[in-house]
Computed example of a mutant assay.
Amino acid sequence: MNILDPSALNGCKLDWAAKTLLLDGYSLIEQCVHNIDTHGSMYLKDHLLVFLLEGNLRVVYGKQSFLVNKNEMILLKKATLVQYEWSGSHENSNLFDCLMFSLKSELIRSFLTSTELRISRQNSVHQVLTSVQPMDECLLAFAQSLKPYFKNVAKVVPSQLRHKMMELLYDTAVCSQAMFQQILHLQQQVPTDLREVVEQHYATQVRIQDLAYLSGRSLSSFKRDFQQVYNLPPATWIREKRLNKAKEMLETTGMTVSEICYSLGFENVSHFSRIFKQYHGKIPTSLRQAV
């Protein structure tokens, strides 16, 4: 059994330079197409979502074994050694075809804080188990939309790849709640730096419960840790931070009051103006006129 380089995502003995889409120097999306049955093992550096488009895949993952068939998918946890057997489809010239997506935490966090979807999340006390899930027409169409990218990888720019990863997560959230819950569960398992999460997202319309989730904490743990770090409740700190930033922007930029209001995550201008006056002693328009 060969243990692969930890930076590798797979064990196919092919020319992967022509089958790999890179982002910031790491393998983001890989395509594996061949007609030779193979087996081996792979060490996962990142969470790996596998779309099987042709053939069969059997993986031994931890103490469990899974069989993935055509038009099915499986999510595998990072920092694990996975044993696999890949076999082609006898109905299609023994063809094996799969796509593999590296799901880095920052990409998932970016999606969660930018999407307009209201995503339901299972209570963290309930374990979300790894399972094979079917791909519907939406996800199959997404998979096919990636095929042209592999024909000329040199022309694929980072912004395209980030867009396609956001599309992947959106389609998965809409089309397969069971699989997306698995992704959320893996994302939730590792607490991240609270300051980093809060400072990055305080100016968006993200809710406090979303900040708790992004930091890998329950809502009660997040509020407790937040109080210890900032000596203020989260809602109070976020409101004051936004209002101070708004004052700074009014004094130093040419943005309109409306533009500043919405850029900082306030829901409407009248609410923004009212709390701005309560905090700074004057309405935003008067401050702008004074400047």
Results as ranks from 00 to 15, higher is better:
Ser131Val: 00
Thr256Arg: 07
Ile36Pro: 09
Thr253Gln: 12
Gly216Ala: 00
Gln278His: 09
Ser176Arg: 00
Ala235Glu: 12
Pro134Arg: 00
Leu52Thr: 00
Pro6Ile: 01
Gln209Ile: 03
Ser220Cys: 08
Gly40Ala: 05
Gly265Tyr: 10
Arg58Tyr: 04
Lys70Arg: 07
Arg118Cys: 14
Ile183Glu: 06
Ser41Leu: 01
Leu53His: 01
Glu199Val: 03
Lys155Ala: 15
Ser7Ile: 04
Gln83Tyr: 09
Met249Gln: 15
Asp97Met: 00
Ile183Tyr: 08
Leu140Pro: 02
Val198Ile: 08
Ser218Thr: 15
Lys78Ser: 07
Met165His: 07
Ser120Gly: 15
Lys63Ala: 11
Lys155Met: 11
Tyr26Phe: 14
Ile108Asn: 09
Asp136Leu: 00
Ala18Trp: 12
Tyr213Trp: 15
Asn268His: 12
Leu112Val: 06
Leu57Lys: 04
Val60Trp: 08
Asp210Cys: 06
Asn71Trp: 00
Val198Ser: 10
Lys247Ser: 13
Ser89Thr: 00
Leu112Pro: 13
Leu22Cys: 15
Gly254Phe: 11
Lys282Tyr: 09
Ala290Tyr: 11
Arg58Gln: 11
Asn71Gln: 05
Val269Glu: 13
Ala173Cys: 15
Thr252Asn: 15
Val198Cys: 14
Glu85Ile: 03
Leu214Phe: 06
Pro6Phe: 07
Leu22Gln: 14
Trp16Val: 11
Gln160Val: 06
Leu146Cys: 09
Ser41Lys: 04
Asp24Tyr: 11
Thr256Leu: 10
Leu44Ser: 02
Glu199Asn: 12
Gln181His: 13
Cys32Phe: 07
Pro148Leu: 00
Arg195Gln: 14
His34Asn: 10
Leu99Asn: 05
Ala203Thr: 09
Val229Cys: 11
Glu30Asn: 13
Glu54Met: 03
Leu117Arg: 12
Glu199Gly: 04
Ser65Asp: 08
Leu194Met: 07
His47Met: 01
Leu22Thr: 11
Lys13Val: 07
Thr253Val: 10
Gly55His: 02
Ser102Asp: 05
Cys12Thr: 05
Gly11Trp: 06
Glu167Gly: 10
Glu267Thr: 15
Tyr279Asp: 04
Ala173Ile: 02
Phe51Glu: 01
Lys241Asn: 13
Lys19Ile: 04
His126Ile: 09
Phe276Cys: 08
Leu112Ala: 10
Ala8Pro: 04
Phe226Arg: 03
Ser270Asp: 12
Thr252Ala: 08
Phe66Leu: 00
Ser41Gly: 06
Gln188Gly: 11
Gln64Tyr: 05
Leu140Met: 03
Val174Gly: 06
Asp46Leu: 01
Leu21Ala: 08
Arg118His: 15
Ser273Ile: 01
Lys63Met: 06
Lys45Gln: 13
Phe272Met: 04
Thr204Gly: 11
Leu4Asp: 11
Ala235Asp: 15
Phe111Trp: 08
Leu140Glu: 03
Leu219Val: 13
Val68Gly: 05
Ala246Leu: 07
His271Tyr: 14
Trp86Val: 04
Val198Glu: 10
Ile238Lys: 06
Glu116Ser: 15
Val82Gly: 08
Tyr202Thr: 00
Leu75Ser: 01
Met255Cys: 08
Ile183Arg: 04
Ser27Val: 03
Leu48Phe: 05
His90Pro: 14
